[in-house]
Design a protein around this nucleic acid. Structure first.
Length: 591
RNA sequence: GGUUCGGUAGCUCAGCUGGAUAGAGCAUCAGCCUUCUAAGCUGAGGGUCAUUGGUUCGAAUCCAAUCCGAAUCACCA
């Protein structure tokens, strides 16, 4: 049980025996005591003043005395300042906590709860390489999956690949027109970048044709519709849907190039999936559900044959679910895929990691599912995250301001290399170990940077600040870990010893922080927010670094103090490691 | 225009189930390596928590209005 819970229960019991009333944890608050006051936790009593008809000081005095006399093993002293009851936790309690948990590498994790969750994330288009925004998505999805696992869920990571549609045909047409048979191999280009280049070439050619048509007197809209390259692309989409062999062959060839590129990137950044869905297989799903909806009168058919749902009573609009030609739209497929996921895996919850520009779409999806009375409707959850922007504004592929995922990862790793070499601490490492270390640090910096802010907020990616490896960063936490490991390599054995003198403030502060780890993991899962973990880990590392600077571990003033600090060091390293693991970040033994 | 989200230090962000003098990091300035890794530590300066009103013992936090910014409202995906 967490210490806050223990204090809550002790307070409830004491209030009951003092005032003969029943209280719950909602009747008072427990906060961390501010550093300028003496104590560990503060019980805020103002809310009890009315019902007890006593002043906060009177309640505080009675409660403080009662707590101390009833549970001397938990509380060692109290004081009251301006109506706040500050209690100090007994050192014995902290030490017992430390001894019990310091070696437990599963500390903070919950037992399996029998619930199954699917986390869908990444969801790339196969017409261009991944960019910075995808990285936020990937790291978020991965981390949320890990956090849910730590909370006892069985987690399935899934990915829907958007591998068909007009955007894919654009790359294909451009390749046919401009490539002269070039391939990733022949040009020494990573497959996804190769295909992405043709997507750009399409847009260049398209723009040029529009300009030409406008010169001939067409309006902008007309020109956009009638540009030959666009007409060709639309024809290709029809051919694809008809399964025309040469189109399918080209499509498969180019997708294959992209997948090779993606695989390399995913491997590099440490992402994987338990199940990959391809839109080319799922885009027809959901049509049967539309029929069902028509029968249930949830949907209605217009004169032209198109099928709609009226969501205006819910404050939304009228939405199309089936085109007049009978083909499905985005939302139709998503309804179908949601059903397939549920049928196939019997999941209890379905989490979609998708950018906040699709908030409306996801709201509609859930609402339609609810109106259809689908059993999984309420278990659809959109984990919406904000866009990644540059200090100069939004990333725009057309203006060439997109930060490419492979580029930025490579840059972070190169920076890690540069720092490591400048510091010269690992000169005895082999080439292979060095490479691994640079990856660990560079990716650690990248992941931490993208995960340390609240997912739902948009974030500014500042290239200069992001390559800083000092302060509130991944390498800072990694460094703290490596320092501890360095000590532990020299001090391998721990003795059992129960003879500890009073805790020094810094010792207590570190233990105090470590104790919160389980609560933080629960909070992170509740909010689906890895930034809780990142902020917490930074705090733990910072506090430990203060202790490290002020107090010697190996040359502690006494044998007992040395043992105690070794316990603290071991537990800190364990918490840092398992916490960073929840963010998908590895820890170096040395750096 | 409707809906949704956001506005906290020069910059990037915490804090938001109401609690004591609003916190970090970066940047700036001043210190600390003959002793466990200085990717570190200690300290200083820096704030009208967008604005106004309300709720109350108490508001960055809750409510309302206003201002500013973003996303979205396709027979695109």
């Amino acid at each position: 049980m967490s210490i806050v819970k223990s204090i809550q229960q002790a307070t409830i019991r004491s209030l009951h025996s003092l005032f003969e009333n029943d209280f719950s944890e909602k009747d008072f608050q427990i906060n961390q005591t501010k550093p300028e006051f003496e104590g560990d936790y503060t019980i805020v009593l103002f809310s009890l003043v009315k019902s007890l008809k006593l002043s906060p000081d009177e309640i505080g005095n009675k409660l403080g005395t009662e707590l101390l006399s009833k549970q001397p093993e938990l509380f060692s002293s109290y004081n009251i300042i301006k109506g706040f009851l500050n209690v100090t936790i007994n050192d014995e309690y902290w030490i017992a906590f430390l001894q019990k948990n310091y070696h437990d590498i599963c500390f903070g994790k919950q037992a399996m709860n029998g619930k199954k969750v699917m986390v869908e994330y990444s969801s790339p288009n196969t017409n261009k390489p991944l960019h910075l925004g995808h990285l936020r998505n990937n790291f978020l999805g991965w981390s949320v999956a890990e956090i849910l696992k730590a909370n006892g869920y069985e987690v399935l990571k899934s990915c829907i690949v958007n591998d068909r549609g007009i955007h894919i045909c654009k790359s294909m047409i451009a390749w046919q027109l401009f490539a002269n048979g070039a391939t990733p191999q022949s040009t020494q280009t990573k497959g996804d970048h190769f295909v992405g280049d043709y997507y750009v070439k399409f847009n260049d050619a398209y723009k040029q044709q529009i300009a030409e048509l406008k010169n001939k007197g067409m309006s902008e809209a007309e020109a956009e519709k009638n540009a030959p390259i666009m007409l060709q692309t639309q024809q290709m989409l029809l051919d694809w849907e008809a399964g025309k062999p040469e189109v399918m062959e080209l499509w498969e060839k180019m997708n294959h190039w992209v997948y090779e590129g993606f695989e390399e990137t995913y491997k590099k950044i440490g992402c994987d999936f338990d199940k990959t869905y391809y839109e080319s297989n799922t885009y027809l799903l959901g049509k049967d559900i539309v029929q069902e909806g028509l029968q249930k009168n949830v949907f209605h058919k217009k004169d032209d044959g198109s099928v709609w749902i009226d969501l205006t009573p819910d404050g939304l609009d009228e939405k199309l679910v089936l085109r007049k030609d009978g083909t499905s739209v985005y939302i139709t497929q998503d309804i179908g895929l949601a059903k397939q996921k549920y049928d196939q895996y019997k999941i209890d919850q379905s989490i979609y990691v998708i950018g906040d520009e699709q908030n409306y779409h996801m709201k509609v999806l859930k609402l339609i599912a609810q109106k259809l009375g689908l059993p999984y409707a309420d278990d659809i959850y959109h984990l919406s995250y904000g866009m990644v922007e540059l200090p100069t504004g939004k990333m725009k592929s057309r203006e060439g301001t997109v930060v490419d995922a492979d580029d930025i990862v490579a840059e972070m790793i190169a920076t890690a290399k540069q720092h490591t070499e400048a510091l010269g601490k690992v000169k005895d490492f082999s080439e292979e170990d060095l490479k691994h270390l640079y990856n660990t640090i560079g990716l650690g910096a990248m992941k931490f940077y993208l995960l340390r802010v609240d997912p739902k907020k948009k974030m500014i990616f500042n290239p200069e600040e992001s390559i800083d490896f000092h302060g509130f960063t991944g390498p800072f936490v990694q460094y703290t870990y490596a320092r501890i490991k360095s000590i532990l390599r020299k001090e391998p054995t721990l003795e059992k010893n129960n003879n500890y003198s009073a805790l020094l403030p810094l010792e207590k502060e570190v233990i105090f922080n470590l104790e919160q780890f389980p609560s933080i993991i629960i909070e992170a899962a509740k909010e689906l927010n890895p930034s809780c973990i990142a902020n917490y880990l930074f705090n733990v590392a910072k506090t430990f670094n203060s202790l490290y600077a002020e107090l010697s571990i190996s040359n502690a003033e006494s044998h007992e103090k040395k043992q105690l600090r070794l316990y603290i060091a071991v537990m800190t390293s364990n918490v840092l490691q398992s916490g960073m693991q929840l963010l998908g970040i590895q820890m170096p033994e040395r750096m």
